[in-house]
Amino acid sequence: MTLTLTVPPGAKVRVRITNENGETTEIEVEPGETVTITLPAGSTVRVEVEVVDPDGRKRTETFTLKP
């Protein structure tokens, strides 16, 4: 399973991925970048995406991906 994120110009994104064992991976994606994350097959993962807009506003979306 893959997750692809494209960050709009001016925004910053931090992604936290937590697996079933509670292990967390965190990455930051710079403005204008596209990143593809390969998620472990057969695992349920929690993905938290934090977006910081150019004006400093933050918003966070959290979702769970199941196999």
Rank of each mutant, 00 (worst) to 15 (best):
M1H: 07
F63A: 13
L39P: 08
M1I: 09
K12Y: 09
V45H: 06
V51Y: 14
T24P: 07
V51S: 03
L39H: 04
A41T: 09
K58H: 03
R59V: 05
P54K: 10
S43P: 05
R46I: 11
V15Y: 08
T34Q: 08
V15E: 00
T4N: 04
V52Q: 05
G42W: 14
E33I: 10
A11T: 03
V51R: 02
T18S: 08
N19E: 09
L65F: 15
T2D: 02
R57Y: 03
V51E: 00
V35A: 05
T34G: 10
E50N: 02
V52F: 02
I37G: 09
G56C: 00
E26H: 06
I37S: 12
P9Q: 07
P67N: 14
T4F: 12
A11R: 01
N21P: 12
P67C: 15
D53E: 04
L65S: 00
A41W: 14
T2C: 14
K58W: 02
E28H: 07
T64H: 04
T36G: 08
T38V: 08
M1A: 04
V49G: 00
M1Q: 02
E23I: 09
T2V: 07
T62I: 14
V45E: 02
P9M: 06
E48R: 03
D53I: 00
K12I: 06
T18E: 10
I27E: 10
L5E: 01
E61F: 15
V7P: 01
V45C: 05
K58M: 04
K58V: 12
T62G: 03
R16L: 04
E61M: 15
V51M: 04
T62K: 02
F63N: 04
E50A: 01
E33D: 10
P54N: 04
I17H: 11
K66W: 15
R57N: 08
T38R: 06
P54A: 10
G32S: 13
T36I: 15
T44M: 10
R16W: 13
E50I: 04
L65E: 01
G42R: 14
T44Y: 12
A41P: 05
P40Q: 12
T4P: 05
S43I: 13
R46C: 05
R59F: 10
G32N: 11
T6D: 14
P40R: 14
A11C: 03
G42K: 08
E23L: 06
D55Y: 06
R14Q: 07
G32V: 15
T18Y: 12
T64A: 01
T36L: 14
G10Q: 11
N19I: 14
T6R: 09
E50M: 02
F63H: 11
P9L: 04
D53H: 04
V45M: 04
T2G: 06
D53Q: 03
G56S: 00
T62L: 02
I27M: 11
V29E: 14
S43H: 09
K58G: 01
K58D: 00
G32H: 12
V49M: 03
A41Q: 06
G10M: 11
T60Y: 10
T44V: 07
I27N: 12
R14E: 08
G42N: 08
V51L: 02
T60N: 01
E28S: 08
V29W: 14
V15Q: 03
G10N: 09
S43A: 13
T6A: 10
T2L: 10
R14W: 10
D55Q: 03
R59T: 05
T36H: 08
R46L: 10
T4I: 11
I37N: 15
L39I: 05
V7M: 08
V47S: 00
R46S: 03
N21M: 07
V35K: 06
T25L: 12
R57C: 07
V45G: 08
R14M: 12
R46K: 06
V7S: 01
R59N: 01
L39Y: 09
E23G: 08
P9V: 06
N21S: 07
V15N: 00
P31Q: 07
E23V: 09
G56V: 00
I37D: 05
G10V: 05
D53M: 15
T4A: 09
E26Q: 06
